[in-house]
Amino acid sequence: MTQLANQLASDIQRYIAANNLPVGTRLPERGLAEHFRVSRSPVREALKRLAAQSVIESHSDGGFVVADAAAASPAAELPSAANDDAESTYLRIAEDRLAGALPDRITESELIRRYGPTRNQLTSILRRMVHEGWIERLPGHGWAFLPTLSSSAAYNQSYRFRLLLEPAALLESSYRLDEAALRACKQEQEALVAGGVRTASPAQLFDANTHLHETIAGFSGNLFIVDSLRRLNRVRRLMEYRKAVDRDQAERRCREHLTLIDLLLTGQREAAADFMRLHLRDAAREKASATG
């Protein structure tokens, strides 16, 4: 778990810098675990490592918050993911896989020959792909790509399924809001509206937005709803990368997310369910008309 915790510490540090999280921002274990799609144990270890580096600090009520040292940390000075070599390689692999240019099974040596990353970069990229659910290690040797959405018809069906699922999640009798997790999502969306949406990569936008939707679905208390949405998001991820990113539309959706969050924070569940339905319907229409 040591290697994963070290990688997560770096990822969390980048997450703090990329979203310009202010000093004092809470860093909930569960929210980070859901965002990075790992269990809470390695997140807990990663937070301890960052606390030892004074990037974050313990809070009097428990947990951790962003510390003053985060602003001067190396992660804050790193280039954005959109310009990072590893991010570029990751997106090229995603595009080639979606286009059918890669076989179902492949070795690390073949990936290095084709895309030219260092061994360490490829290890990080493969770990990310495993967490996102579109590749898995084969016993003994090599890797196998997992099924993803690859047609416009299937992509449109995914939105129709979400229209059935997500508004209903807000009306479940077992619904229970986690205010700390929702406020962490709100900070992420506010950072995007404040300018982050203009520079974020397609992967960063997808992660921020699916994190919010999965967090809200989790409030339903219905494990089948949460699992269905997470599975769907894993298989539609690559299709989202292929869509042309309209920054104005992306910003508008983030603003709608903030409206949705405020409805939930003020206890207006039925209004939030109605708003969720309109939000998904409009997003489906925008994506259907997008090229790329």
Score class of each variant (00 low, 15 high):
Ala101Val: 12
Thr123Gly: 07
Gly221Leu: 10
Ser173Asp: 11
Ala51Met: 01
Asp11Thr: 03
Ala168Ser: 12
Gly292Gln: 04
Tyr90Arg: 12
Phe275Gln: 01
Thr107Pro: 00
Ser41Cys: 10
Thr215Pro: 05
Leu278Trp: 07
Ser80Trp: 06
Asp207Pro: 00
Asp84Pro: 08
Ser220Ile: 08
His211Tyr: 03
Lys186Gln: 08
Glu251Gln: 14
Trp134Gln: 00
Ser88Gly: 15
Thr148Phe: 09
Lys243Gly: 07
Met1Arg: 10
Ala250Ser: 14
His131Cys: 02
Ala46Ile: 01
Leu122Val: 04
Ala194Met: 13
Leu258Gly: 02
Tyr115Lys: 06
Gly221Ser: 09
Thr291Cys: 07
Ile56Asn: 00
Thr199Ser: 08
Asp207Glu: 15
Arg242Lys: 12
Leu47Cys: 06
Gln157Ser: 13
Gly221Glu: 11
Ile106Asp: 00
Ser150Pro: 01
Ile16Pro: 00
Asp282Lys: 10
Arg128Thr: 04
Ala250Met: 04
Arg231Glu: 14
Ser174Leu: 09
Thr89Trp: 12
Asp248Trp: 12
Asp282Val: 11
Ile12Pro: 04
Asp246Trp: 03
Leu149His: 00
Ser54Gln: 15
Glu29Lys: 13
Ser109Asn: 14
His131Phe: 02
Arg198Gly: 06
Glu87Arg: 13
Val245Ile: 13
Arg277Gly: 10
Tyr15Val: 03
Leu8Pro: 00
Arg128Val: 07
Trp134Asn: 05
Lys287Gly: 02
Asn233Arg: 10
His257Phe: 07
Val245Asp: 01
Arg105Glu: 07
Tyr159Met: 06
Gln189Arg: 15
Thr118Val: 05
Gly116Cys: 02
Arg281Phe: 08
Arg252His: 06
Arg242Trp: 10
Phe206Thr: 01
Gln3Trp: 11
Ser151Ala: 10
Leu149Ile: 10
Ser173Val: 13
Leu78Ala: 11
Arg253Ala: 12
Arg114Asp: 09
Ala46Pro: 06
Ala184Met: 05
Ala51Cys: 11
Thr266Leu: 02
Ala82Tyr: 08
Glu29Met: 06
His59Asp: 10
Ser289Phe: 04
Arg234Trp: 01
Met129Arg: 01
Cys185Asp: 00
Ala70Gly: 09
Gly31Val: 00
Asp11Met: 00
Ala81Tyr: 03
His141Phe: 13
Glu136Leu: 08
Gln53Asp: 10
Arg114Ile: 09
Ala208Ser: 14
Ala284Leu: 05
Gly218Asn: 05
Leu122Asn: 03
Arg230Thr: 05
Cys185Tyr: 00
Gly24Val: 13
Met129Pro: 01
Ala290Val: 06
Asp227Ile: 02
Gln268Glu: 13
Ala33Val: 06
Pro167His: 08
Asp248Cys: 10
Asp61Phe: 14
Arg92Gln: 15
Cys254Asp: 09
Met239Glu: 04
Gly24Asn: 11
Leu8Glu: 06
Ala181Phe: 05
Arg119Asn: 07
Arg26Leu: 01
Ala273Asn: 12
Leu223Phe: 06
Ala283Cys: 11
Ser228Asp: 08
Leu102Pro: 15
Ala81Cys: 11
Ala86Gln: 14
Ile12Arg: 01
Glu251His: 12
Thr123Glu: 05
Leu32Gln: 02
Asp282Tyr: 12
Arg128Met: 04
Pro28Asn: 07
Thr210Gln: 08
Thr107Phe: 05
Ala169His: 03
Val130Leu: 06
